[in-house]
Design a protein around this nucleic acid. Structure first.
Lengths: 168, 168
DNA sequence: TTTACTGTACCGGCTGGACGGTTCAGTGGT
DNA sequence: ACCACTGAACCGTCCAGCCGGTACAGTAAA
């Protein structure tokens, strides 16, 4: 399926050249196909961006669900580290791609609202859970702007520190 | 001085219409002046964006310095809450404005790298300080995408919770 | 097993419009 | 006389979306 490769190409472009580099021609070239081929899969530029946003949300939700802990926060924590360390879910790239029109960003904002509320009140220590989730958010942000800040050892240490804040 | 108003207008536009709304004509109109007047102060669009980025960094650094705590992390925490709750420093808007060309974003990335390293190792509990700073980062992010998530009471509670993680 | 047809996937040239940036002759307050 | 603009005209570039075409795989009647 060429669709995924086109989304990857768009994210590549955003990640290493910024949002003004996201033109249909550039995406097509990066993916090794023609503009017409790109427009066959995504009939407008907006559709392409929507595609990136939806994929990001779906994949992260799946990643959270795939963790085997007993609270949403712990799963969220594990998923965040998995996403950030693998570098596969480039959230910042997608956000900047969608930042042109706010309604393209709306699904992501809704998802974020969900990620920071889901199951919060039923957790053993809601205040700690909230802090951990915010730190995860911050980690994602910092890691995309300053990739060299943490190495694997630092990540592991940080993860232990965050888990220690959570009861159980 | 019209300069500040022009920067405000640009941020307004970014905050409530997204980055593609940032055109010279739109900024001028929003600020209530002409395109010529805008170009009198900022001779190119890049200069305007650079202006926003520099102002954001300077104002936040001043805000941190203006707090009276005994560690950088505590000052950073207090400054973040002040910035987020007042809504005056619209970091997200500035970031999206600058996300078109990565070199415009570079000063902000350097500033972030600094904010997450400065004085970290000399603090009483570096691991806790790191978590608190990441949570601040996350708070800034979440607050800009989901402004309704926290009210004043929640902010106060969260701030107490974060301060409690720091020794002293 | 040839022919005719259908749908899918993809190509690439073209154009209309928007936008950044420039210039310049005013204007009004100080 | 100078600063801080105004307002409008203008230009060149860039780019999204359109559209006419191509290649090919499957399929099914004759």
């Amino acid at each position: 399926m060429r669709r995924e490769e086109l989304l990857d190409a768009a994210e590549d472009l955003l990640a290493d050249q910024g949002s003004s580099a996201l033109t249909l021609a550039a995406v097509a070239e990066r993916a090794g196909c023609s503009k017409g081929g790109l427009l066959y899969h995504f009939s407008t530029k907006e559709a392409l961006i929507k595609g990136m946003v939806e994929r990001l949300i779906e994949e992260f939700d799946e990643l959270v669900a795939a963790q085997g802990h007993d609270t949403y926060t712990k799963n969220y924590l594990a998923a965040t580290f998995a996403a950030v360390q693998s570098g596969r879910l480039r959230r910042w790239a997608v956000v900047t791609g969608a930042s042109g029109n706010l309604y393209l960003l709306a699904p992501l904002r809704e998802a974020m609202a969900r990620w920071h509320r889901e199951g919060l009140e039923t957790e053993p220590d809601p205040a700690a859970a909230q802090i951990v989730r915010l730190a995860c958010e911050g980690l994602w942000d910092v890691a995309s702007h300053d990739p060299g800040l943490y190495d694997d050892g630092r990540y592991a240490e940080l993860k232990r520190g965050l888990l220690a804040l959570l009861p159980g």
